[in-house]
Design a protein around this nucleic acid. Structure first.
Lengths: 192, 192
DNA sequence: CGCCACTATGTCACAACTGACATAGTGGCG
DNA sequence: CGCCACTATGTCAGTTGTGACATAGTGGCG
């Protein structure tokens, strides 16, 4: 019934009451690593959660034509979240444009592909440094039962992911460098 | 103009002519790691590629009410693919249900979460073994310019991914085991 | 000869998601 | 006082993707 986005919202609200805008902000910054949504989608989903009785809200004065609405999880919502959390995740298809490009990369020139991977590597290293800095701020992992455990565990996953990605980029760059050096060039037919 | 799925199809067809069914099969088995699509979507996308002049087909006799259509990439399609391949990939949002569940895991019991991760670990280890077996079949990496280079590079990424995932699962299980041992249980209020 | 699995193409309703547009209050800067 | 950035909610058209339904030829097994 409730979509995954609905549970993502419940997971945010379980940490404390929030406006739709706050949820959208959370989806941009710390949660963006594993789930994202635009505010347009969030407002629509909040209507569904409201209809299902999983969230409630309190209208307060604030900016915008309609003031602000501070949402909170209801007892039913909390129960639904708890049940969903322990259900095995359904296999979502990975959709990775970079790997797809790599799969088709043989149609292009190695130098261009190499440049693309150099850029990707830089991006991954930057994000890795950012995550590691964030991890150091937390220090040692919070205990299970603390909401921050969720944040820390997700961050840990993110760090592992960036490391794996960076390593793969480096391997690709190595492979492509081999294709670019003279001994390899001489072995294939080229312009005289 | 052309969607990413369109390029995924072109990437498959660049390896040789295929029917829509063949493309769907390819999307289930080797490409599924980084892109998936149902046959319904593939047939629709092929119509768009046809209209764009990126693919052509040859009608042949075969099963089904309409016979079979063997598709191939045109010169324009080949050029479009070559251009797309070297464009920097746009950041696609990662949508990872397991990490989302982990983010919300503190609302549930550690034992249940631990079980979920044990199952995930088993799945990742199985897939890793499968990929590694496949990698051994190929042997040493094909040179750039060979279509099999794309397959090998993607497989290499898959192996790295499964290793990273398995490692993260193991870390989570360790963390949860700590939460489950008596010294930790004694420190929190529980039933007498 | 009937049944099933596989090959093969297609439609359709629906759900999920995106990007642009629309509206409006608050607080800070020059 | 005007302008801008930020907070805040919402609509809407359009694209992408899913799952079910529909149709039909071939080859193998019992």
């Amino acid at each position: 019934m409730t979509s995954t986005l609905g549970f993502a919202i419940l997971a945010v609200l379980a940490r404390g009451e929030r406006t739709g805008y706050d949820i959208a902000t959370a989806m941009r910054r710390p949660i963006a690593f594993f789930w994202t949504a635009r505010h347009s989608q969030i407002h629509a989903e909040l209507q569904k959660l409201l209809a299902a009785g999983f969230v409630g809200y309190e209208a307060r004065q604030g900016p915008g034509p309609q003031g602000k609405k501070v949402y909170h999880v209801t007892a039913e919502g909390s129960l639904a979240l708890r049940e969903w959390v322990t259900e095995p995740p359904r296999e979502r298809p990975e959709r990775d444009e970079l790997v797809l490009k790599t799969y088709a990369s043989w149609v292009a020139g190695p130098a261009e592909i190499r440049q693309m991977f150099a850029d990707q590597l830089a991006a991954h290293e930057a994000r890795l440094a950012e995550y590691e800095r964030e991890g150091e701020l937390i220090g040692k992992p919070p205990g299970f039962g603390d909401p921050r455990f969720g944040n820390y565990a997700a961050l840990r996953c993110g760090i592992g992911y960036e490391r794996h990605r960076a390593e793969w980029c480096r391997w690709m760059i190595d492979q492509l460098s081999e294709s670019l050096n003279p001994s390899w060039e001489a072995a294939k037919p080229s312009e005289p």
